[in-house]
Design a protein around this nucleic acid. Structure first.
Length: 351
DNA sequence: GACTCGTGGCC
DNA sequence: TGGCCAAGAGT
């Protein structure tokens, strides 16, 4: 519940700043335009989950051109959708994107629910995304809390409790400064501020319209908020990937729906345990790339030893022969795209 | 609450 | 170089 007082003037100051300094983003309705399309707001919010604006840009353009409405997206082929998402990461988002589009089309007549509660029930829509879409696309007062808002609010009120224990207090404070009108603009203004001024390191307090309201600005070290817990060290894993080539095609599998890189096309690569003596998927004259492909995931790093051979039969299990000269259309996640590039470079160097 | 789940840019 | 970080959600 919003209260009057010092906290009530923060939104006004921030919105005035936003009216002048708002970033121009493809999914953001230009000033004075009609309300944003809920489909596009939702699509952008899902893509932006834990992902930078710069990385999302080309994917957003591709998706809106190819699937301009939620109903068109709902009719998309699963493999096409996953391939289009390849490289953006967190592939559960792509699976949930399709499930959500189909739920909206089938259960809601192709219209997104206009309430936070209705949105929250959709696949891949959590507390943040539900609030953001409700506020930005439907003009509802919703308390939008992402990592930017967490940081800005923790600094405004100098909340020294470490995360994640500080979340209830941060959310309560965000609620207190969220205005009854323009909640969508307010949310985007908070996120713009967090992305461009109130940054994690070296915040540009001299440019901040809220510095006179900011309890952290009054301290020696505004960047000390919010307080974050120490992170665990990342373990290292070793895996083996298998490039099987036949008549200009390479054998690709589809990974299991759940788990890492779930639902994505991939080179066969077994389990990434540190098995020193891997079993090839088929008997052949195998060669091994001199350098393994290194890749860092969220909670571990991987060294993938890449083996390659010409074969005259398919290995056991499901898969497909994919034309090597069109491998960029297979939608390989980055790890396997890099493994494939390494094999092709080795092969080209040999010729 | 603690884990899992990608990728690229930045300092 | 390597840790940190990004418009989090699901289990």
């Amino acid at each position: 519940m919003r209260v009057e007082g010092r906290e009530s003037k923060i939104a006004g100051e921030l919105l005035a700043h936003y009216d002048v300094h708002a970033r121009k983003l493809p999914w953001r309705a230009p000033p004075g335009a009609n309300a944003a399309d809920p489909y596009r707001v939702w699509l952008s919010e899902v893509m932006l989950q834990q992902t930078t604006v710069a990385a999302v840009g080309p994917y957003y353009a591709k998706f809106t051109e190819r699937w301009p409405t939620v109903e068109v997206l709902a009719a998309a082929d699963d493999a096409d959708l996953m391939a289009a998402w390849a490289g953006l990461g967190y592939y559960a988002r792509a699976r949930n994107l399709l499930a959500c589009a189909r739920a909206v089309t089938r259960d809601h007549g192709g219209r997104f629910p206009a309430t936070e509660e209705g949105l929250r029930a959709l696949p891949g829509v959590g507390a943040y995304t539900a609030a953001a879409v409700a506020a930005i696309a439907f003009g509802q007062r919703a308390v939008v809390v992402d990592a930017n808002v967490e940081r800005v609010v923790a600094r405004l009120f100098a909340i020294g409790t470490p995360l994640p224990a500080a979340r209830p207090a941060i959310r309560a404070a965000a609620d207190r400064i969220t205005p009854d009108t323009r909640a969508g603009d307010f949310a985007q203004a908070m996120m713009d501020l967090g992305a461009t001024v109130c940054t994690p390191r070296n915040p540009a307090c001299g440019l901040c319209p809220l510095r006179e309201d900011c309890a952290a600005f009054a301290t020696a070290d505004p960047a000390a908020f919010p307080v974050k817990p120490a992170k665990k060290a990342k373990p290292h894993r070793l895996g083996h990937g298998w490039w099987m080539e036949r008549d200009g095609h390479v054998w690709l599998e589809r990974r299991p729906e759940r788990g890492l890189l779930g639902g994505m096309r991939a080179l066969p690569s077994g389990a990434w345990s540190d098995a020193p003596d891997p079993t090839p998927p088929i008997n052949a004259e195998w060669r091994t790339l001199a350098e393994p492909v290194g890749h860092v995931f969220t909670h571990f790093s991987l060294a993938l030893r890449v083996h390659h051979a010409h074969v005259d039969a398919a290995p056991d299990g499901e898969g497909e022969w994919w034309p090597i000269d069109r491998l960029d259309e297979a939608g390989l996640p980055t790890l396997f795209a890099r493994a494939a590039a390494a094999v092709r470079k080795e092969r080209d160097a040999r010729n």
